[in-house]
Design a binder for these strands. Structure first.
Length: 265
DNA sequence: CGGCGTGTTCAGAA
DNA sequence: CTTCTGAACACGCC
């Protein structure tokens, strides 16, 4: 599930916990903790509260605050990554899910870190370290400028799809989003990233910003039939724009869907 | 049983 | 040095 729009949705979920004291942290499966353990997580979080969460690419950072005390510099932050199957859910009842791995119990409700496959997980790090790590990542796709896109593609000898999926180049785009973006821009996924003509750079940039902007309100890449994503699992799927039978290939080791007519080389 | 997947990282090859 | 490929991680679904 999680690409930039999904994580943006999880940021909204996390906002519901902001300002409420965490009374208890239930570590149901410490296999999702990275570089920390249940005791350390509880020590850092219990009796604290979450401050305003921020997202960069597919990372979500939740800074901790001490209730009724002046904010101290560089409190720890809880850093979430959701892999392919994770998410955050807010609940006010006692419900529990089979794949809940960590549950933060606050005075107002419970925040569930839920993840079936456990490919990524939850970290604890000083807030400035979290910030440094995110700054080190690529430009966030939701705010990417044309100039930044040009700069990142310039001199690259890679193909377009792997380049766009590289989180250290542009942060937030995943397999589905990139296919959607290239389809909307009418650009072939194997096109060399480095020598894209200026007009196609502009089209690609508009497509990145436009696709992200439209996907964020739905909190995911829409499966609408007017989107390419809505057809990628059909056996004989057709291009929603021109009706041509979609091609299924691999690019950068990832399943790739594209229209041979709209995205001709 | 085998294959596959909205992510990331690593070793090893080209 | 850059880029690519396949495997690994873990788990449910076909």
């Amino acid at each position: 599930m999680p690409e930039l729009p999904d994580v943006e949705g999880f940021r909204h979920v996390l906002e519901r916990a902001v300002g409420h004291r965490v009374n208890h942290v239930d570590v149901i499966d410490d296999g999702v903790l990275r570089g920390t353990n249940g005791a350390a997580l509880r020590r850092a979080v219990v009796d604290q509260m979450f401050g305003t969460p921020r997202r960069h690419g597919k990372w979500l950072v939740a800074p901790l605050r001490r209730p009724k005390q002046r904010h101290r510099k560089n409190e720890p932050s809880v850093v979430f990554h959701f892999g392919m199957s994770g998410g955050l859910v807010w609940s006010t009842g006692g419900e529990q899910h089979k794949h809940d791995r960590i549950v933060f119990d606050t005075a107002a409700g419970r925040l569930h870190y839920r993840d079936m496959r456990k490919l990524q997980g939850v970290r604890l790090m000083p807030d400035d370290a979290a910030t440094a790590e995110l700054v080190d990542a690529g430009y966030d796709a939701a705010e990417l400028t044309l100039g930044q896109l040009r700069q990142t593609l310039e001199g690259s000898r890679r193909r377009l799809k792997p380049a766009l999926m590289d989180q250290s180049v542009i942060a937030g785009l995943g397999n589905l989003m990139v296919d959607e973006i290239l389809w909307r821009a009418r650009i072939h996924p194997e096109e060399p990233a480095g020598d894209l003509p200026a007009e196609r750079q502009r089209r690609l940039h508009r497509s990145i910003r436009g696709t992200v902007e439209k996907a964020i309100p739905t909190e995911r890449v829409p499966g609408h039939t007017s989107w390419l994503t809505g057809h990628r699992d059909e056996r004989d799927g057709e291009c929603p724009r021109c009706g041509t039978k979609l091609r299924h290939t691999r690019s950068g080791g990832r399943r790739t869907v594209w229209c041979p007519r709209c995205q001709a080389r």
